[in-house]
């Protein structure tokens, strides 16, 4: 009797001890996760996720209040990285593959007020007061801030037209 109880008891103790140790050693601090997530984000503080800043959004995501795919300008790359960090499954369906868009300025009605230029988080708009502004396509993240502030409505997000170079095969239906 004792022969069978003792080893089992010993085994139990040992495993319990190991688990305890593991939970200490492998403990991940919550706030650390938030910081790590923040590092994955674009850092443009664009507010498209509904949070006031990227930092706040990262906190919310770490606390499970936001889904991994919360960041629209980050796209799928960021969503995947965040999901990986949190060990959550990525619900790709929630990531409605929005067509990439770019800000475009209608030259006829731009009055050169520089408001868009001031709010752009990536300095993708160039131009000085009273002059026509231009958008740098590769720096624009389509966050839409400029659209909000433009007094004449001349700046809009338009879908990027597909070219032979950007076209790729779709997922085959199976």
């Amino acid at each position: 009797m004792l022969v069978s109880i003792l080893p089992l008891a010993g085994l139990g103790t040992l495993l319990g001890f190991l688990l305890g140790v593991a939970s200490r050693v492998l403990y991940v601090e919550r706030s650390n996760v938030a910081r790590e997530i923040e590092e994955l984000l674009p850092g443009t503080q664009c507010g498209q996720c509904g949070s006031p800043s990227c930092g706040a959004a990262a906190e919310a995501a770490a606390a499970g209040e936001l889904p991994p795919a919360f960041c629209p300008p980050g796209g799928r790359a960021v969503a995947e990285a965040v999901a990986g960090k949190l060990g959550l499954p990525l619900d790709l369906a929630s990531l409605v593959d929005e067509q990439p868009r770019l800000a475009e300025i209608n030259e006829d009605i731009c009055i050169g007020c520089t408001r868009c230029y001031k709010v752009c988080p990536t300095d993708a708009i160039a131009g000085a007061a009273k002059q026509m502004h231009v958008v740098f396509a590769d720096a624009c993240t389509a966050c839409g801030k400029c659209e909000e502030v433009c007094p004449t409505g001349c700046i809009r997000l338009v879908p990027v037209t597909e070219t032979l170079q950007s076209w790729a095969w779709n997922q085959p239906s199976l």
Partner: peptide, 21 residues
């Protein structure tokens, strides 16, 4: 390929945002 492009753009965006900050 498109992910790589996206990642590169993200990298750039981050740098630009930081510079602006």
């Amino acid at each position: 390929a498109s992910r790589q492009r996206e990642a590169r753009k993200m990298e750039k965006t981050r740098a630009l945002a930081q510079r602006r900050e």
